[in-house]
Amino acid sequence: MGEPPAVAPRAFDPPYLAPGAAAPRFAPGAVVRVKRGAAPGHMRTPWYLRGRTGRVERVCGHFANPEELAYRRDGEPVLPLYRVRFALADLWGDGDGDTIDAEIFEHWLEPGDAP
């Protein structure tokens, strides 16, 4: 697997951070890996990205946990949501220099060098 694709630094702060919520653990440019787990029910982490390594493109802000919202709970505490960039070549073995950006909640991410 190659180096995760580059992300361009953004000139502005994420617009949807919630005051008082836990600060995002990962910064733009950080290498992260999607956990291999599975939630018992509704989840918004696509299966094709489980176990894959990418790079944080931006912090989107704090959002309610969809795995709670789906069952009529309030989704609190809100969680940091990221856009993570993956190389097509890393996912499928080919794909030129093309990329996929997907939104992943923080509890699904671990550092790219985690054991």
């Binding site: 989107c60 030129d96 990329t99 939104e103």
Partner: peptide, 28 residues
Amino acid sequence: EPRRVLAEFGLTVPGTTTVRVHDSTADM
């Protein structure tokens, strides 16, 4: 295979242009 999908829409993206797919998986 985004480039093949785009080609079927009649859009050929040059090899010098990177295709960035955005998977709208959560709140954006």
